[in-house]
Design a protein around this nucleic acid. Sequence first.
DNA 1: CATTTTTATTTGGTACACCAAATTTTTTAT
DNA 2: ATAAAAAATTTGGTGTACCAAATAAAAATG
Lengths: 221, 221
Amino acid sequence: MSHFAHHSEENYLKTLFKLENRKDKKVNNTALSKALNLNPATVLEMVRKLAGRKMLQLLPDKSIRLTESGKKKALLTIRKHRLWEVFLVEKMNYKWNEVHELAEQLEHIESDDLVDRLDSFLGYPSFDPHGDPIPDKNGKVKPNLSVPLSDCMAGKNYTVINLIDTSDAFLQFLGKLNILPGIKIKLLEKLEYDNSFSVEVQKRIVQFSEKVAKNILVQPV
Amino acid sequence: MSHFAHHSEENYLKTLFKLENRKDKKVNNTALSKALNLNPATVLEMVRKLAGRKMLQLLPDKSIRLTESGKKKALLTIRKHRLWEVFLVEKMNYKWNEVHELAEQLEHIESDDLVDRLDSFLGYPSFDPHGDPIPDKNGKVKPNLSVPLSDCMAGKNYTVINLIDTSDAFLQFLGKLNILPGIKIKLLEKLEYDNSFSVEVQKRIVQFSEKVAKNILVQPV
DNA sequence: CATTTTTATTTGGTACACCAAATTTTTTAT
DNA sequence: ATAAAAAATTTGGTGTACCAAATAAAAATG
């Protein structure tokens, strides 16, 4: 029952993973400290601990790199986070932009079994409410096959996966039309005249400018 | 985001509340330490902290008593614990005896709002899978109207609320008959001959000895 | 190349929540 | 009342995770 919380280990690994995948730029102590909003001294200390636990390596040039085991732990934490986000949105009726903090707490619940049951309960979702992919129980992420709606074929059905522009204005606009990750749409036609797109969403037909269509990532159904 | 975990505060208050309601016997440091399975020095230190936070009082005779505010906090923690237990059993398909540890973790998630949504999602249950009552959002517990099956009237329908004997043997026995908190039963008759009870459970008819009937608490439907 | 700036690291702290062992106080039993 | 037992308390620790401020090392810039 000792419940070695190691609560923060997961935060470090998760943040590190995201930083590594942001740019191929090397991650240093400063970057990690800023991302975690913690004092560099604290972070250095913890990074050394994690190096001892073989979760990451401190390279000679002082950059930090996750080991395979660290990456896996990070991915499993991301999995937990995203599944809880789905739960909060789908079952607890939160809005997708309200769930981050809560998921941040829930992701630290220690039980692989619970996470798998949650996964099943939610119908094995592939994406969280923000459109980010959910790793499977082995930490594997399905290759993302999504493309901008602007590159799609008229007459076919798609699932909205993610939004590129995440500005409030854009999200507000799409929110009114009920366009959000997970929703099914049908691309009716591309109108040559003004390069606009005619789309069916929940039995309603809406028009998108090309700019909008470029910012909506979808996957064929 | 202050993340004042005060994770353990909730455990102390919850345990204290249960001890206070067990017997009218005064709760002392030893009793609390044993219940929490912690060193008395640790517990004394924490008890003083909690007294400072006005969650409890250290009486002149060295007994510990929760303040109203401490009681409320305890009840709200118990509420969280029991709602999560219902969630784990009803939605995650755990067995009622598997959920304690997990609920122990989940109860510390900080969000009153989430708890209320969970409550609604679960259909405002009045009892957890062990048959213990779930306080409402104000910490109020419905008066428990349950009585031993042995005191019931033949011919009436009842809901199993709780089990007094919680020994493995007893639970095993009832498990086989599908008797567990929440289940609906009908008391067919009391047999004078050997003081046994004839009960209908899910279209089957079973016989209980008086001893068994005394250990099953039910509520009229 | 020397100087400023940035980054890394060390040092000496903090709070929380825990422990074992020694000591004191209180209670109980003789 | 006194000795033994139990309970309360004190003392000096632990590990985790954090911080500010000082210093050292590395990188960037004139």
